[in-house]
Design a protein around this nucleic acid. Structure first.
Ligand SMILES: Nc1ccn([C@H]2C[C@H](O)[C@@H](COP(=O)(O)OP(=O)(O)OP(=O)(O)O)O2)c(=O)n1
Length: 978
DNA sequence: CAAGTACGCCAG
DNA sequence: CATCGCTGGCGTACTTG
């Protein structure tokens, strides 16, 4: 062991040759991990060292020692009792034996108090209590743990089958947990706090979670918008925004307020989804798709796949007539459905209603009423319109019967399109003779049977591809069928283009403005037929243009056979959008909401047994000039949308991880809480749970080894950017898994890559092989070479073939006990914040004259520069326009000069756990900027940064890093500040 | 030029 | 009182290294 803490090269080589393959691989990946052992929190990692060969153990020990000393030094500055570390170091220890650990802690704490001259008397408030915490709480599980045992109670991390706990602390319970805990005293965390504050055990029933009454929820008074104090606006379609003189009338609290539930209410999501038709529609569709996919997979297992080789397909498209309206009318015998205009909407038949019409019957349609229209507009067209209530259960029942009948027909395949609509292929059910008669017979009996079973009518369209079947269905409606088997050109000629699937308002508008500027009437498919394919491609892009061209000629090869390509029909993303009822007063409320949404997302992920590696947050923000309260009650009104995504190096299904990403993304987007009108979280790049564990290990272990130290580079101890390795990491993976997983690496990765690539052209995530390459790059070149030759000798091909662009992400992992930590790294090239800056002015906002610079400034100012001294801020703003993107970032430059740690992961190593815990004193120090959490160093760094970049302005990446740092501080401050 | 991000569009 | 404006997939434009 050389003085600088790195291994001497010759002894290293000798040592290396003594290792087995998997030991060597493990050693490489473990260097980074060992380094993390520097943290006092990672005590359990150190215990693993017992399993290591002595040499590697001493290597890591040396490194750890050095770091530890540094940490202690750092703490020694102004802290009183540095020799005892802090609470965090104690509680992060994954205790094998909780009781012993707790006792040791009490001892430790007593000594600490003695050292600090505090009263060492032990409180006994919770004597006799055995407490368990379920789910996410505020204060955090760690804090509650601490409070309980400091006050005489016992704390258990796991509920044993004996029911050892006397109290369970939780803020929310899933229905399942509610049942599970029904015999426990389930209390809110406040019970702990109040008991301590009042010095005596409070009655648990006063804090019981079961009878939580959310009735205290009430509408808050909102500040008037400073810039646009518009009144409620009454434009029918929100397409025009007129200024208004009337100031916004404040929403007056209805004292009990229980009727008004908006997004601030904990039960809002549930209530909203229960009544949202579009949510039902989407959920039903996803469920049906999954059900049929599973069915097909089951079948093909037992009988193998029979390809429908028919050259001439017969595709059937079945769809209930005005589905919701028909079904809802079943419960209203007083209504003459064939002759009275009827629709389905919320809120009954009121002329001024801004409720959406979900479905209207064919009587209404004669008046021009359409699905999706507002009731009040429909009422103008058709004053006699009758609005019926939704009957979601009824829709499900009718749908179930429909699908049962369809399955009973034994078609070649069935593809659910929606709750009321399906595509069938029946090629093999129809002989070559009398085809037309057979198809007609099929349609008639199908329609008859469905009507008999459901008392609802369906229409049926049949043709030889999906496109033509759909168009036939359109012709067949209502209550009829149509088999299109000849005269295709003629059939298509007079159909409006908007009837083609995939052709909606935007494409029609583009056609009118760019292709047929002189056409006054509706554009027909016939007119498209007269166009060159190249022309369409020029206007709409290659894919869209081609599709338009082919559809216009009746060409469509879309397959509806799930069996032929199940991958194509499996879900690739999960998202939740809420663009109604979104009204917030503070970012803290938004943070809460984001967690609730993340919880829902993660519930779905867990049901699918999947993890995500990319999180996208999309928000709707009130458009400038739009009224603060739109015409639709709690609607989103005219909005601009913004989205931002973030990669997770370690795929996750933990709502805290997803939720934290969302919170950071929200801050990166930057939106005044009062202006927020819509929120959506989407997770993509899904990975099967379990496979993700294999990936997680190498990811989690990857950390930049201390290159400078291993190389014996000169240390600049006085520079503020020096890496002190304060960050901590703890691994969730039991160490026994390590070697088995690693052993698998070289051989199986290839297969996995191929499998993934087949499924999806783009690689879903970075694979372990790449990570190994990353590890390599962090090693000193000499050792890299050494390792390479050694690995080559052993036929281990790690890191040889790397993708053109490697990206490595760190993040924090939450253990089941909620105690562990994960590091997260955003690769430097990820989502530059300049993107929204540049795009903002081109948004659909009606206010077009926003100057580019102003938008940039607004963004920067809002997110970062407010935190800086005014003089610096001004300079930066003035210089911003001169700034050239092509420059290196200033942090890169500093790093090149050795003033920053030699690492790519300069946005690294912030504890996410720390962000959701409110153990403020301990956790604030884990928020890092350029690998330090010390204000003095950060200030020095920023000072230098400012001076260096004062002429050109800062690099956007540097800004983004700083912004993310501030976001994290901000989250801590909001949720954890004592 | 391959791959990534943001965002738009569409269907029910 | 209102009202419950979802969601997944695909395509394009543009950036990045
Ligand atoms: N903007 C929309 C479109 C549809 N739906 C719901 C209500 C419809 O009943 C159901 C099915 O949609 P369809 O497009 O099939 O429309 P309908 O069944 O109402 O009428 P049609 O006879 O044209 O199929 O989806 C909705 O809530 N909002």
């Amino acid at each position: 062991m050389s003085q600088d803490g790195g291994p001497s090269e010759s002894s290293f080589r000798d040592y290396m040759s003594t290792l087995e393959d998997d030991e060597l691989i493990e050693l490489i990946t473990s260097w980074s991990q060992k380094r993390k052992a520097s943290s006092p929190k990672a005590a359990d990692i150190n215990t693993n060292d017992a399993d290591q060969p002595s040499h590697s153990s001493s290597l890591s020990f040396q490194l750890a020692q050095e770091d530890n000393e540094e940490s202690v030094d750092d703490l020694g500055g102004d802290d009183k009792g540095p020799i005892f570390g802090d609470y965090a170091s104690y509680f992060a220890t994954k205790a094998q034996n909780q009781q012993i650990e707790d006792e040791k802690f009490l001892e430790w704490n007593k000594k600490r108090q003695q050292v600090q001259g505090q009263d060492t008397k032990v409180s006994s408030i919770f004597t006799g209590c055995v407490v368990h915490v379920n789910g996410y709480t505020r204060p955090s599980i760690a804090t509650i743990h601490k409070l309980i045992i400091l006050n005489g109670g016992k704390f258990i991390h796991h509920l044993s089958s004996k029911g050892a706990a006397t109290h369970i602390i939780a803020e929310r319970l899933t229905p399942r947990k509610q049942a599970e805990f029904k015999n426990y005293k389930v209390v809110r965390p406040q019970w702990v706090l109040d008991s301590i504050e009042r010095g005596s055990l409070q009655r648990w029933s006063d804090y019981s979670l079961i009878e939580v009454d959310y009735g205290q929820q009430r509408l808050q008074f909102r500040n008037e918008d400073q810039t646009n104090p518009h009144a409620k606006q009454d434009d029918e379609d929100e397409s025009e925004i007129g200024p208004s003189t009337e100031p916004m009338s404040e929403i007056v609290d209805t004292t009990d307020g229980t009727t008004t539930i908006d997004s601030k209410h904990p039960d809002f999501l549930k209530q909203f989804f229960a009544k949202s038709r579009l949510h039902h529609l989407s959920t039903w569709k996803a469920d049906l798709r999954l059900e049929f996919l599973n069915m097909v997979i089951e079948q093909s297992k037992s009988q193998g796949h029979m390809p429908t080789g028919a050259s001439h397909r017969i595709i059937v498209h079945v769809d209930f007539d005005c589905f919701f309206a028909t079904v809802s009318a079943l419960k209203r015998p007083d209504i003459d459905f064939q002759n009275q205009p009827v629709c389905v909407s919320h809120g009954g038949t009121k002329p001024g209603s801004t409720a959406d019409i979900a479905s209207c019957n064919y009587v209404c349609r004669k008046y021009g009423v359409k699905n999706g229209m507002w009731v009040r507009q429909a009422k103008k067209l058709c004053p006699d319109l009758i609005c019926l209530d939704y009957d979601f259960l009824g829709y499900e029942t009718a749908s179930k019967k429909l699908y049962e009948i369809l399955l009973g027909l034994k078609p070649d395949c069935i593809l659910p399109v929606s709750i009321d609509e399906a595509l069938l292929e029946i090629s093999s059910l129809i002989d070559d003779e009398n085809t037309v008669e057979q198809v007609q017979g099929f349609c008639e009996s199908l329609r008859r049977e469905i009507y008999e079973q459901t008392r609802c009518t369906v229409s049926v369209g049949v043709s030889h591809n999906v496109l033509l079947a759909k168009l036939s269905l359109r012709k067949a409606k209502p209550n009829g069928y149509f088999y299109l088997h000849e005269n295709f050109e003629e059939f298509l000629h007079n159909i409006p283009v908007s009837s083609l699937p995939g052709v909606g308002g935007a494409i029609v508008n583009k056609l009118i403005s760019q292709v047929f500027p002189h056409s006054s009437s509706e554009i027909t498919i016939g007119e498209i037929q007269g166009l060159e394919r190249a022309n369409l491609e020029k206007v709409f892009g290659v894919k869209t243009g081609t599709k338009l061209f082919e559809y216009a000629h009746g060409i469509d090869h879309t397959s509806i056979d799930i069996n032929s390509n199940p991958e194509a029909f499996t879900r690739k993303s999960i998202s939740i959008d809420i663009n109604w009822g979104i009204r917030f007063d503070s970012i803290a409320q938004i943070d809460e909401f984001l967690f609730r949404v993340s919880e829902e997302i993660c519930n779905k992920l867990q049901l699918m047994k999947m993890c995500t590696s990319q999180v996208t947050l999309k928000i709707l923000k009130r458009s400038k000039g739009a009224p603060i309260e739109p015409p639709k009650f709690l609607g989103c009104g005219q909005c601009d949308s913004f989205s931002k995504s973030s990669r997770l190096g370690i795929p996750s299904d933990d709502y805290r991880t997803i939720g934290m990403e969302a919170r950071i993304l929200f801050r990166n987007i930057g939106c005044d809480p009062l202006e927020l009108r819509g929120v959506s979280i989407q997770v993509t790049k899904l990975i099967e749970k379990g496979k993700e564990v294999q990936m997680r290990l190498p990811f989690a272990r990857l950390d930049a080894p201390k290159t400078a130290r291993l190389e014996g580079k000169e240390q600049h101890s006085d520079t503020p950017m020096e890496d002190k390795s304060m960050e901590t990491t703890q691994l969730e993976i039991p160490s026994e898994l390590d070697s088995s997983v690693l052993r698998e690496l070289p051989s199986s990765i290839e297969k996995r890559i191929d499998a993934q690539r087949q499924r999806d052209k783009a690689p879903i995530v970075d694979l372990p092989r790449d990570i190994d390459a990353q590890v390599f790059e962090q090693l000193p070149p000499s050792i890299q070479e050494e390792l390479r030759s050694e690995l080559r000798r052993r036929n281990i091909t790690i890191g040889e073939r790397t993708p053109k662009r490697k990206r490595v992400y760190y993040q924090q992992v939450f253990t089941r006990t909620g105690a562990s930590e994960v590091i997260r790294i955003i690769s430097p090239r990820k989502s530059p914040s300049k993107s929204p800056l540049k795009k903002s002015p081109t948004k659909k906002s009606p206010v077009k004259d926003v100057k580019r610079r102003e938008t940039k400034v607004a963004k920067v100012d809002e997110d970062v520069l407010n935190e800086l001294p005014p003089s610096l801020r001004k300079e930066i703003l003035e210089e911003w326009d001169e700034y050239e993107r092509t420059n290196m970032t200033e942090f890169d430059r500093l790093r090149e000069r050795g003033k920053l740690p030699e690492t790519k992961f300069h946005n690294s190593a912030n504890s996410i756990e720390s962000l959701v815990m409110d153990d403020f004193e301990c956790k604030i120090n884990l928020i890092m900027f350029q690998k330090t959490s010390q204000p003095s160093k950060i200030i020095k760094l920023v000072d230098r940064w400012m001076k260096k970049t004062v002429e050109k302005g800062p690099h956007h990446r540097d800004l983004e890093l700083f912004q993310t740092y501030l976001s994290k501080l901000n989250i801590i401050a909001i949720h954890c500040m004592p």
